[in-house]
């Protein structure tokens, strides 16, 4: 059996694949956080709960309505996104004039409520969700076995991330969005409905979280707690990348997933903490984050 640095290649590539999968979710979630933060100046603590809601929506569509994975991929983000729009209109919109910390506290409270309700309804053991028929099985790449579904997750996450980057950085709609981030009053004076843009942006960010949840459903078990610990890691990813740049959060997400995978191979004891340690180091050297501008 071939070995690299005394580690069998099978194990190494296996962990790198898991790292890339985790990285896909870090990227999707931190992208959503960055988009929301850009316009609303709020760190959306509910993001983990909304990711969990996406996974549950997929489960619900399959178990109760008989609609499969591809339907879930389209419907769940919209449904959860609509709940996000309602939350923004009813609650977050009242806080924009206050200290941004109140937004954090509100979304934290909401996350507790949502996670508690789901735990009450579904228990904490978790529900299974099967891999869709078309993506079952895997491909032998010669040096490793690649399950088709995992390849799909990485591919889909890349497409969604780059698509979002393209819309925000290269289109007219994105230009409005970036302008509103810089100076909402001025953009309003040009006749653009900024409050509606803010609402839709929040809905979109929440939809991204739900999309990640649907994609995660066949890999991790669908449980009320699935987003709670993940969101803290994503926060660290966001701090490392800095929230200034969309591409920054995508790159940081994937890179940290890979680093975490490598740590699992070479020093498994630190695999849970390595991202936090990197965060501490980055803060000492570049407080604004790798891609962030101080503000």
């Amino acid at each position: 059996m071939t070995e690299i640095f005394g580690v069998p290649t099978q194990a190494l590539f296996g962990q790198l694949l898991i790292g890339l999968i985790n990285g896909s979710f870090y990227a999707l979630l931190s992208l959503g956080l960055a988009v929301i933060f850009g316009l609303l100046n709020i760190i959306n603590f509910t993001h983990g709960a909304q990711y969990m809601m996406g996974a549950f929506a997929a489960w619900f569509l399959l178990a109760k309505l008989g609609l499969g994975y591809w339907w879930a991929l389209a419907l769940a983000p919209v449904a959860v996104g609509v709940t996000g729009v309602i939350v923004e209109r009813l609650m977050l919109a009242r806080l924009y004039k206050l200290d941004h910390l109140y937004g954090l506290l509100l979304t934290f409270g909401l996350a507790l409520v949502i996670q508690g309700l789901f735990r009450h309804e579904f228990g904490s053991s978790g529900l299974p969700y099967a891999i869709p028929k078309a993506l079952e099985g895997g491909t032998n790449l010669g040096f490793m076995y690649l399950p088709n579904y995992r390849a799909w997750v990485i591919f889909a996450s890349l497409v969604v991330c780059l698509g979002t980057w393209f819309v925000i950085e290269k289109t007219r709609l994105g230009a409005y969005l970036r302008a509103a981030t810089e100076n909402p009053e001025l953009v309003r004076a040009f006749g653009i409905n900024v409050p509606r843009m803010i609402t839709l942006t929040y809905g979109f960010g929440v939809g991204l979280a739900a999309l990640a949840g649907v994609m995660a459903a066949p890999i991790y078990t669908v449980s009320p707690q699935m987003g709670a610990d993940l969101i803290i890691v994503v926060f660290a990813v966001v701090v490392i990348g800095g929230m200034g740049s969309i591409m920054g959060s995508i790159v940081t997400g994937f890179a940290l997933g890979l680093i975490e995978g490598l740590t699992k191979v070479f020093y498994p004891e630190a695999s849970n903490t390595v991202i936090f340690i990197i965060m501490a180091i980055v803060l000492m050297i570049r407080p604004a984050g790798l891609f962030g501008a101080a503000r």
Binding site: L95, L98, Y102, F108, G109, V113, I114, Q115, G116, H120
Partner: peptide
Amino acid sequence: LGAWVTVVQGAIFVVCVLTFR
């Protein structure tokens, strides 16, 4: 009441932030 404790705590958070700062 189990999971309800979390729900109530979260709800208090929301109410406090919105109306009782």
